[in-house]
Lab assay of single mutants.
Amino acid sequence: MSGIALSRLAQERKAWRKDHPFGFVAVPTKNPDGTMNLMNWECAIPGKKGTPWEGGLFKLRMLFKDDYPSSPPKCKFEPPLFHPNVYPSGTVCLSILEEDKDWRPAITIKQILLGIQELLNEPNIQDPAQAEAYTIYCQNRVEYEKRVRAQAKKFAPS
């Protein structure tokens, strides 16, 4: 494992614990031996107030490669969400998460999670990743928002 990646992720964890947006979660997972795995984080993004996503808490896994922060983490909703920019596998399609697009090593975990929260309610229809959600979003916004509200209710924190 890269010392650069681990040191950056340790800084990220410290900064997150000191200050993070209300309702968001970002925690490194534990290895079988109980030690912390900084390369694999369990996160959760709350649906934004005043949107059909409100009330939901959407679980996301963030996986970092050894060359982080040169390369972005892979962000994957578990379980996958109904959304035009979420692949059926759950992987998020967002330009700041793509090395050859808008990724920059200075982007923080907090910025990534806030960017994904923004994307939930403002899909990028130029870059669809899920045919069904994309089609319904474009053709029947009322039905799309109904499905999103049902999903938010399903993923409401207990």
Rank of each mutant, 00 (worst) to 15 (best):
A150N: 12
I4W: 08
T91S: 15
A106C: 10
N121I: 09
D127H: 03
G115H: 00
A26T: 00
A133I: 03
Q126H: 10
K154F: 04
K30C: 04
I107P: 03
R149T: 09
N121V: 13
G47E: 02
G3N: 09
I116P: 02
L94P: 00
N85D: 01
Q11S: 11
P105D: 01
S158R: 11
K110E: 07
T91E: 14
R17N: 01
L119E: 05
F64V: 12
I136H: 07
G50T: 05
C43Y: 05
K48R: 13
K101R: 14
A15T: 13
S2V: 14
K74C: 15
K146H: 14
P52S: 13
P72N: 13
G56T: 00
E12S: 04
L81D: 01
W41K: 05
Y134K: 04
P123H: 01
S70I: 14
F82Q: 02
N37E: 14
E98H: 15
E42T: 12
A15I: 10
D100I: 15
L60H: 05
R17Y: 00
P21F: 00
E118T: 09
E99Y: 14
V27H: 12
I125M: 08
T51W: 02
F64Q: 06
C93V: 09
G115M: 04
P21M: 06
I4Q: 11
L113R: 01
Y68G: 02
I125T: 09
Y87R: 01
P88E: 15
Y134M: 09
Y87H: 05
I109S: 04
A131H: 10
A26S: 10
E99V: 11
V27T: 04
K153R: 13
L6W: 09
K101S: 13
K59M: 07
W103Q: 00
L97T: 15
T135C: 15
K65T: 15
R17M: 03
M39V: 13
A15N: 08
R8Y: 08
T35L: 02
A26N: 04
P72A: 13
K153N: 14
Q130L: 12
R141T: 12
M39F: 13
H20P: 00
N85H: 01
E54K: 08
Q11Y: 13
E78K: 15
D102R: 02
I116D: 07
S70M: 10
T35N: 03
H20E: 02
D67Q: 10
L113H: 03
E143P: 05
S89I: 14
L119C: 05
K48L: 12
C138N: 15
N37M: 11
M62H: 05
Q111M: 13
P69S: 02
G56A: 05
D127F: 04
S158L: 12
